[in-house]
Computed example of a mutant assay.
Amino acid sequence: MDVGITLPGFGHDIIAFAQHAEGVGLESLWHGDHLIPLNPFLDSTLVLATAAAVTSRIKLGFGVMVVALRPPAWTAKQVATLQHLSGDRVLLGVGSGGDAHGEAAWRAVDVPFAQRGKRTDAVLDVLPGLVRGTPVGLHGAQVVLSPGATMPPLLVGGGGAAALRRAARYGDHWYPAFVPRAAIAAGVARLTELADEFGRPRPGVTVGVSVALGDVPAAAIDRRVKGMTDYGVSEEAAREVIVTGSPARAAERFAALVEAGADRIVAMPFTEDRFRQAELVAAATVAV
């Protein structure tokens, strides 16, 4: 099992945190992708490029890039550039964008919110060829980007039926977050069926998990539950999926997700002691 951790959404300690996460042995770093979010958030491509420049081993994940907000050629150019800068360490999480952040970002770039799923699929149809630098038809012309790069592993975010179908059709991994163990197991079973329909191997599974290890005040957990309910998660489900307690207890929770079908865990710390959280998550990884 691989275990990664999310970077802070913003702040001057992103560089130090990236180096710290690599130093404690975590597999990957992840950053979300929001144009007009509920909370302040730096640009994902620039943050990951910065992390690439100050690390040498740890993988760099988009969790997840909302590709429908961008022209596909620019998306491919950025991904290929990051592959070159990082030495092929990119994990390309993609998603269609959800309801939680509203339609402001979509209006800002003149993309209809209702068409986000269709546009996401259209980008994924051409993205691998564009990244690799092979000829791709766009708007009636052949486009070749140079220099081409290795197409990174593609992870498809989301927990619904459309996301599962998209993951089976395009993805190397399915990437749900904040979902119970039973939903992972059910999703893996459905993913297997869909992959068979598309004649592809069943994608792997990366699971995003909200964590706060060690001695955490109940009020901090309550605030996190409230934040998750704002994203459409029920309070009962939010309390079920949050991972708290000792590294040994977290290891048990991670192992249960692996048993359900997960190959990678992405820890999403929600307390202020992020550097300590990285250490505790790394300790949990060793204990699995």
Rank of each mutant, 00 (worst) to 15 (best):
E279S: 15
Y231T: 05
P135N: 05
S246H: 04
H101I: 09
Q78N: 13
R57M: 00
I14E: 02
I58V: 12
F17S: 05
D230T: 09
D273T: 08
A16K: 13
D172S: 11
D196E: 14
A177M: 13
T271Y: 00
Q115H: 09
L138F: 15
A108K: 07
R165M: 07
G159L: 09
L48M: 09
A248V: 10
P71H: 15
P128Y: 01
A105Q: 14
H12S: 15
P247A: 00
E236W: 00
E193D: 15
V109K: 05
D88C: 05
L164A: 06
V241Y: 01
L7G: 02
T206A: 10
G9A: 11
I265Q: 03
T120K: 02
V131C: 11
A108D: 10
P152H: 03
V136P: 02
L280A: 00
A282M: 06
T6K: 01
A267P: 02
I36H: 04
T45A: 14
M228D: 04
L194Y: 15
D222V: 06
A182M: 04
V243E: 02
A250Q: 02
K77Y: 14
E240G: 06
D13R: 08
M228R: 07
L85N: 11
M65T: 14
R200K: 15
L48E: 05
G9R: 13
E22P: 05
R276A: 15
R249N: 09
R190P: 08
L69C: 01
G214C: 03
E235Q: 03
R132F: 07
E197K: 12
H139T: 10
D121E: 14
T150Y: 01
L60V: 00
F10G: 01
A267Q: 03
V188Y: 07
V188W: 12
D99F: 13
V209D: 00
R169P: 01
A76K: 08
L155K: 03
D215F: 07
T75C: 12
D273W: 05
F62C: 06
V47L: 12
R169G: 02
A21W: 10
H20S: 10
P8C: 05
V233W: 04
G159N: 14
L130D: 04
I5S: 06
A108E: 12
A141R: 13
D172N: 14
P37N: 11
A283N: 06
G95H: 10
H173M: 14
D88I: 01
A248C: 01
S234L: 03
V90M: 01
R200I: 08
L26D: 00
Q78G: 11
G93T: 00
V24K: 10
I265V: 14
R276D: 13
G32R: 05
A186E: 14
E236D: 14
A167L: 09
V126A: 07
T229N: 03
P147M: 04
G9Q: 08
P217G: 11
G208L: 00
